[in-house]
Design a protein around this nucleic acid. Structure first.
Lengths: 229, 229
DNA sequence: CCAGTCGTAGAACAGTGTTCGTCACAACAA
DNA sequence: TTGTTGTGACGAACACTGTTCTACGACTGG
């Protein structure tokens, strides 16, 4: 006689519990959404959906959306590697650090648009980065005040230029190029009697040269800080 | 015999039409709301309420909320006075222009938080400002590329520092001071073994000195641009 | 075995930006 | 004078948001 199956359809044990929610999983999921769909697509409901739960569940682990973004930023800031200060080449080390910080910000979709609102370093890895830059500036011989102002303006350059670049973030580089072309065409078309320089410099103003604009500001700032030793 | 009244209740002429809606009135009302209640209080419904109409009415004059903010910014940028370039003192003129731009941004509540998203000058007065700065930089002898990069980074310094200052915008200066104190206390309380410089420089990092931080960056940038003539 | 705690999550709340559909009115042509 | 057309106004509706409320199940300790 054929034995009965262990369970009947409809009476199976529930599927094994999915992984429990955690702050880390929520933050990592939020970052994944930003990378694939953009910052504007990020919502508490969207994160919950991706985790197979309800929006309200997230609030047991994260206090609100602002904290979520703060934690997402901290996660990406953890990718910034830190160097030991070398007084002989502190200027190049400062530049390299800011380059790495910028690279990290712009390699996660348009997350940088959220970075300006969280520019005061209060999370572990944001503090790590601030501490590292301060260390490089002090190794270079700057006094306390100059070092403090320096870390301020350097991180501002990074987040502001990354913000700007993120604002034209599109799924494809082709769209970004088209956007630049539209701006250039617009500048060339404004009334030349009122804006002669904007019209004549339209090409230069909108020249898409990747990091060159950022490097320009970085050069000037670091050279200027060096002059204050 | 008593004569009939001129009109009967309910048959009076309607009240005179209120002032018709216009783009200018909508934009001015939005700015007034930002100044008194803050950027976060601004909504299409709030603007409409203030104008005694419905939110949908606004869309006959303004395409969406982003355009509204763009027009509000242009309105405040119209307050930036423009100077005729003087090659003998172009550096001081550049600084003065950026100071005026910053002052205009930070004197309208926390509007500056919207300025980063609208940093590409496409409105008349934003273009006026860009044209003016280009004029000063060209009067100083900078080549086209340096002038283009210069106007970029200078306006970035203005909008980014104004953004940061706006993020701590509160109704009273007392709250702003309390905020700075909380940040300083936080920095002093982080683990000193991991963040020795953040702890020891907590006072300098959070010292509220108004425009001093901005002036620091401005000095370095303008001096750096001058070196590229 | 039961009370307490915790995590989960649907429902609800209060709000948002924007579009749809309708109405009143003005301008114009016949 | 009448009919037509275009425009601005605006309530309702749509689709969405962040966050809180409330109920429930699982787990733990006494």
């Amino acid at each position: 006689m054929t034995s009965w199956p262990e369970t009947w359809p409809g009476r199976e044990k529930p599927a094994p519990r999915r992984q429990p929610l955690s702050r880390e999983r929520i933050v990592a999921t939020a970052l994944a959404i930003i990378e694939t769909e953009g910052l504007d697509a990020l919502s508490m409901r969207r994160v919950a959906q991706e985790l197979g739960t309800g929006a309200a569940s997230l609030y047991a682990h994260i206090s609100n959306k602002d904290e979520l973004l703060e934690q997402v930023l901290d996660l990406v800031y953890s990718e910034i590697t830190i160097e030991t200060p070398d007084p002989a080449r502190w200027q190049e080390q400062v530049k390299d650090h800011m380059r790495r910080a910028r690279k990290v910000l712009i390699s996660h979709g348009d997350l940088a648009r959220a970075a300006m609102a969280a520019n005061v370093p209060v999370t572990p890895h944001a503090l790590d980065s601030a501490e590292a830059v301060l260390g490089l500036l002090k190794a270079g011989g700057l006094d306390d005040r100059t070092a403090s102002y320096g870390v301020d303006v350097l991180s501002l350059l990074v987040t502001a230029t990354a913000f700007e670049e993120s604002s034209r973030w599109q799924v494809s580089a082709e769209d970004a190029s088209a956007y630049g072309e539209r701006i250039r065409a617009f500048f060339e078309a404004v009334p030349a009697d009122r804006y002669p320089l904007v019209v004549s410099l339209a090409g230069e103003l909108t020249r898409d040269v990747g990091d060159e604009r950022f490097e320009f500001g970085l050069d000037i700032l670091v050279a200027g800080l060096a002059r204050r030793v």
